[in-house]
């Protein structure tokens, strides 16, 4: 049996959960797929998940699971997983997953393969593809030791609409858990946004984004001119915002905004996974980077391997014609 742990917040399902269910269905090859949904009150979300063609949706409900804490989730899920005894436990590679699954896998003494993009049969077992070395290489990894094996899948590893729906809703059951509040050592406060987003990059038709290759804050002026020439909004990869060269609200990627404009021009961005997940849905992607092997070129439609300090001025001149 393959068990997917879905994710919800305040009764809203994280849509990456559908992607992971789709992968579980593709992996299953005859074995049943079950979906577990942990939280304080998950009835409506469980019903929503029951639309998928799965053997069962399992509610893991306890008042101590709301709000989310890694201690609470580890206690509840280690008990339920022990009871259900799946072969694989699959999760979307979200920030929440990263926060508790290593602890859960360690507590159960089981393998955890993170941030996977694909699976394939390999000598009777399954091997999982995951990026390594900032996406410069892809590893085929096999989990070892006793089942269950925990595997997390990168956001976008499958399409949410690839989920096979059932003819009738799947059975929804509840597995009782006990979680002692006293055993939870983290006291979380309510989530908040730093400042109201002044720029909504998701609405921009064209975006010019700049990365480490720009080298200094002074050189941002050049990127601004490129953006102006394209009639585009200026955005950046994380390191530029970390350095304070551009405000955080202009950051594209898993910790910033997710965009899918008509045109995305990546200037001096190598293309770490965290950046790619925020922009790979763009219709046309242009990458300009000195390193011809940079991962950004894997998602680009048009690439120029060269010095951006030579190409950018030429591009501004050409667009001005």
């Amino acid at each position: 049996m393959i068990l997917v742990i879905a994710e919800q917040k305040n009764g809203t399902l994280n849509r990456a959960s559908w992607e992971t269910i789709a992968i579980a269905q593709q992996m299953a090859g005859g074995q049943p797929v079950k979906v577990a949904i942990p939280g304080g009150a998950v009835g409506p979300v469980a019903q929503e998940l029951a639309a998928a063609k799965v053997a069962e949706v399992v509610r893991i409900e306890h008042e101590a699971l709301e709000p989310y804490t890694p201690d609470g989730f580890t206690l509840a899920l280690s008990a339920v997983i022990g009871q259900l005894a799946p072969q694989y436990v699959l999760l979307p590679h979200t920030y929440q997953t990263r926060d508790f699954v290593p602890k859960l896998a360690a507590r159960m003494g089981r393998a955890l393969v993170t941030d996977c993009t694909a699976f394939r049969p390999e000598g009777g077992a399954l091997a999982f593809a995951r990026p390594m070395f900032q996406g410069k290489l892809v590893a085929q990894v096999v989990p070892e030791g006793d089942a269950p094996h925990f595997v997390t899948f990168q956001i976008g590893a499958a399409r949410a609409d690839a989920v096979v729906k059932g003819d009738a809703p799947a059975a929804v059951t509840t597995v009782p858990v006990t979680v002692a509040r006293a055993a939870i050592r983290q006291q979380p406060e309510a989530p908040f946004q730093e400042a109201k987003q002044a720029v909504d990059l998701s609405q921009a038709e064209r975006i010019v984004a700049v990365g480490r290759g720009i080298k200094s804050q002074e050189n941002l002026e050049l990127a601004r001119k490129v953006a102006a020439a394209f009639g585009a909004e200026l955005a950046a990869s994380r390191p530029i915002c970390d350095a304070g060269w551009l405000p955080m609200e202009r950051q594209i990627g898993s910790s910033g905004q997710t965009v899918a404009p008509k045109l995305y021009v990546a200037l001096g961005i190598s293309g770490a996974i965290q950046h790619l997940v925020g922009m790979k849905g763009s219709r046309t992607i242009v990458a300009i980077n000195k390193d011809a092997e940079a991962p950004i070129f894997e998602v680009a439609d048009y690439g120029i391997a060269g010095d951006l300090f030579e190409i950018a001025p030429a591009l501004i001149a050409e667009l001005g014609k």
Binding site: A105, R110, A111, L112, V113, E122, A127, P131, M132, G135, K136, L137, V138, A139, Q140, V141, V142, P143, E144, G145, E293, P295, E298
Partner: peptide, 10 residues
């Protein structure tokens, strides 16, 4: 708990 079977260029 895991083993790399193979490394490839993407």
């Amino acid at each position: 708990r895991q083993r790399i079977l193979k490394l490839d260029f993407p």
